[in-house]
């Protein structure tokens, strides 16, 4: 049992990346009630837009721009047919579209750009960002229990600053008249329509903002790992949902807390499992930890649907 592993995963770029994606989902679901089941698709679009641009010779800034524009276009593409329809249509279309992005990405068809099912390696796109690192010379730096290479420190710094900015954005918008309209839409869109607001346009704005945050999460994740289409399947979206609901939807810090707890528990279970079940084969440890994620999600919805930070009063309104 190594407590350091748990501490390391808590601050890791992966956790920051998922916190960003979960904040994005919070704009969709927590604020607006949109059932986006394709958040991993937004992450994947983000990382493809970014990594392909750079691997084809574009600059990092162009990469970020393209990644965000990609997410915006994806949101428009998804929202256009479905935001006028009942909520479950958005769920089906987003999950289908995210799957489509993954299937096209991993296909041999565009292999030249996407790298097919093996994706893009880090050295094809990480260069420009790592060159910006102020932590020179590149070496392993130890601070307290954390020991990382300077490029990781740099990535963590940027990642968590991005999370803080996104959380601040959520806080500000949540408490604004704009956020009020979205919450109204979440409660009853016909009522909001009857008050003279263009519901469709507000939903689209929420979908776009949350999608761009997902894309940003994708870029951070790709930097911490690589571009791998199969890591961004539907299950990844389900994880993001688990994080959001665990921390508490519609709260500012819920998605961050959710991401931290999710990864910490994941590592914790992986470490604990061999101690409790010595007969477990090594390749069975990860599925076991993931099975616990699923069971945890069920228990969460049944026993604490508002999550850890959510307001109990809200849920108890059985109306």
């Amino acid at each position: 049992m190594d407590i350091n592993d748990i501490l390391q995963i808590i601050v890791s770029p992966t956790t920051a990346a998922f916190a960003l994606a979960a904040i994005g989902l919070n704009f969709h679901y927590g604020l607006t009630g949109l059932l986006n089941m394709g958040q991993a698709g937004f992450m994947l679009i983000g990382m493809y837009g970014y990594a392909i641009t750079i691997s084809q010779g574009g600059s990092m800034w162009l990469g970020i721009l393209i990644s965000f524009v990609g997410a915006i276009l994806f949101a428009l593409f998804l929202g256009w047919p479905t935001l006028r329809l009942r909520g479950d249509y958005l769920a089906i279309v987003t999950i289908a579209a995210a799957e489509m992005v993954r299937l096209i990405g991993r296909s041999q068809w565009l292999k030249e750009w996407t790298g097919g099912n093996t994706g893009l390696r880090g050295n094809q796109f990480k260069g420009p960002f790592e060159n910006l690192s102020p932590f020179q010379p590149a070496r392993i730096v130890e601070i307290g229990p954390f020991s990382f290479h300077t490029t990781i420190w740099w990535l963590m710094l940027v990642g968590w600053v991005a999370v803080a900015v996104a959380a601040a954005l959520f806080w500000r918008l949540n408490k604004s008249p704009w956020g009020r309209v979205l919450k109204g839409v979440r409660e009853d869109e016909d009522a909001v329509r009857s008050l003279g607001k263009s519901v469709y346009s507000f939903k689209m704005q929420a979908l776009i903002i949350g999608g761009v945050l997902g894309a940003a999460g994708g870029v951070i994740w790709a930097h911490g790992n690589a571009v791998q289409p199969d890591s961004m399947g539907r299950v990844t979206t389900f994880w993001i949902w688990t994080m959001l609901l665990l921390g508490g939807a519609a709260t500012v810090l819920g998605p961050i807390l959710g991401s931290v707890l999710f990864w910490a528990m994941f590592v914790f279970i992986k470490q604990l499992a061999p101690l409790v079940l010595p007969n477990l084969a090594p390749q069975q440890i990860e599925p076991l930890a993931l099975a616990f994620v699923g069971i945890g999600l069920i228990l969460l919805i049944v026993f604490r649907p508002q999550g850890i930070l959510g307001d109990k009063r809200e849920i108890s309104l059985n109306v």
Binding site: R180, E187, D188, D190, A191, E314
Partner: peptide, 19 residues
């Protein structure tokens, strides 16, 4: 207004009004 009342339940009364 609607025959089946559409109050926005998980919003405060004053927020309903401001909307």
């Amino acid at each position: 207004t609607f025959q089946l009342t559409k109050a926005l339940n998980r919003m405060s009364v004053i927020e309903n009004m401001r909307l």
